[in-house]
Design a protein around this nucleic acid. Structure first.
Lengths: 333, 333
DNA sequence: CGGCGGTAGTAAAACGTTCTATTAGCGGAG
DNA sequence: CTCCGCTAATAGAACGTTTTACTACCGCCG
């Protein structure tokens, strides 16, 4: 347990601790000869800077927090990959928090992030309570919303138009001839689920149908397992001609259950997912879906956050809204 | 940017900073009346403890590092979910590092983790260089290997028997009547890929075949896209009767490419994956695979790590080796 | 009534950095 | 030869906690 400090390095190189600090942080400020001496001492002693001490004194860390709703969902995994890539390029560490849809857990995670004095937080909020995020801001922690429109003007946000997505999805189903549509969704407290439903209704209205006819099946989570359960509910009554699912995991579950029940897709029921995760194209019946620029979402959000942190005076807050893209496959032929 | 410190709380509650610290860390040591007063002050001022200061003084943090090879792979995502669950239950934060198979990136990540003075590190090493991990240990950072056997006795490790897995997979293919087998793998520098190949050869030997006949196609990454490319190489020559893939992502890619090339699975070629990710069961032709206790891998590794950190004197190092389980589906009917 | 043991709380020193003055050294302009 | 300006390096305070040693107080026993 050899804890080598900056002092040891200084002694070994015959300089003062301040000089070592300068070598570490502003190498330009120190004469080449001494710099080399210090660098030699550093590698010789195996010194590694104590991040906490540095954070304490400097007042800020090189760490950001990422809070997502479900790390098991490939959508968020891909977002996380984008975040991690940018962060790592710029020398930031990422602390991962998985809220699993529970606001309590999200709160706990945000508390941990506050204690770590992260530079900023990327979050896909699971509820609609901006107060907690405002509290972070009051503590000087920048917040960028991911896959969620901004709560307020002086804040960055990167989102995808979910109303448009829901509308395009259901419009596509209706164009294929379906007259009755079911919407299999996660908890309607989740904004994405709610807005995709609004879009779905708008599409029905535009097609001259009664939006009230949209049959909504609400699952408690957005997983394949939950999709299977939801499908059971569908097959219990008269089958709709089309099913729109709030994400691909639900859709894959619904697909599996329908096929097992002897329902043909798309002949008996047309099926649409959302997110266009990699596996949508590879499933039993390849799945039509709404593609979102997932990896880009993570990258851009992180770039905005780090710009806000590193250049607070020149930073301009941005609200970015992507448009989702329809990908038609077998499940809606 | 109201930075409330323990001193402010102390002043507000009319006590000394030391007492506030006691309320935070050993509430039993302080009289109920004062404790309440302090707690009131804490919530009134919105105080949140400065983790770095605490880490600096106490000498250790409540943070662990997790370094995986590919966060985009559902296998690792599920491991991460297990890790996150246990860590969060015990009040630890998790710093995520994605090595993307590059030892350089892994090194960078480990350096970041060292700087953060994490309590311990969970790692699926991408190479076979134990030296870097030993360096961590010298700095007092515990290391637990995940999905990898132990490098040394005084270390915990949680692994799955990859040789046995490879053997079982290929034995299954041979039992279904295949005589020629191809192995589509990621880089053979990855231990898992190598050992599964050894298992595959052992199975051929046991069946009276020449292990040298195993046709090995080495992809540069272990993704579906890489699988598609590898399949192109397969379809170029005479088709093998069976293909064993080092993981399910490769297998899904191979499957997609084979079907597109008009090759029937399993009639023309039997196909096996590895990991049994959720999507294996849902794919076009449902995929036979080797199931591993993935979530448990993450959970148990984290429990071992935190036990090692929190009870260093009573902790007994463990090498846990799980056995994978064959799951037969359509692709090997 | 003096001393003893226990509890509740305090003061002050650490932890390893960064940062702000400050000094030392030196070349060149006046 | 003095003074200015500049670079290179230093000393020492500060960041917000935790911890150790200490004091103050109270009740109780002898």
């Amino acid at each position: 347990m050899a804890m080598v400090s900056i002092k040891d390095v200084a002694a070994h190189a015959g300089v003062s601790p301040g000089t070592v600090s300068n070598v570490l942080n502003r190498p330009g400020k120190v004469a080449p000869a001494t710099r080399e001496r210090v660098e030699a001492a550093i590698s010789e002693l195996g010194f590694v800077r104590h991040g906490s001490a540095s954070t304490l004194r400097a007042g800020h860390s090189r760490t950001i927090g990422l809070s997502v709703i479900d790390i098991g969902n490939p959508f968020f995994t891909e977002v996380a990959a984008g975040v991690e890539d940018v962060a790592s390029e710029l020398g930031y560490a990422v602390i991962l928090g998985n809220s699993a849809g529970s606001p309590d857990k999200e709160d706990r995670n945000l508390r941990v992030l506050s204690e770590h004095r992260v530079r900023g937080v990327l979050i896909t909020p699971s509820g609609e309570d901006p107060a907690r995020l405002d509290r972070l801001r009051e503590h000087g922690i920048s917040v960028v919303l991911v896959d969620h429109p901004a709560h307020r003007p002086d804040q960055c946000a990167v989102a995808v138009d979910d109303v448009a997505g829901g509308r395009a999805a259901v419009a596509h189903l209706l164009a294929k001839g379906a007259r009755s549509v079911a919407y299999v969704t996660g908890p309607l407290t989740i904004r994405q689920c709610m807005e995709r439903r609004e879009g779905a209704k708008a599409a029905m209205l535009a097609a001259g149908l009664d939006p009230g006819e949209l049959r909504v099946v609400e699952a408690t989570t957005m997983t394949a397992r939950a999709g299977e359960k939801a499908a059971a509910e569908l097959t219990a009554g008269p089958l709709p001609e089309a099913v729109f699912c709030a994400n691909d995991l639900l859709a894959l579950g619904v697909l599996r259950a329908l096929l097992r029940a002897g329902v043909r897709v798309p002949e008996d029921v047309a099926l649409m997912g959302y997110d266009d995760i990699d596996f949508a194209a590879a499933s039993t019946v390849s799945l039509s879906s709404m593609r979102q620029p997932t990896y880009q979402l993570g990258r851009i959000a992180t770039e905005l956050l780090l710009d806000e942190c590193d250049n607070p005076e020149t930073h301009a807050h941005q609200h970015i809204m992507f448009q989702p893209e329809l990908v038609a496959r077998e499940s809606t032929q």
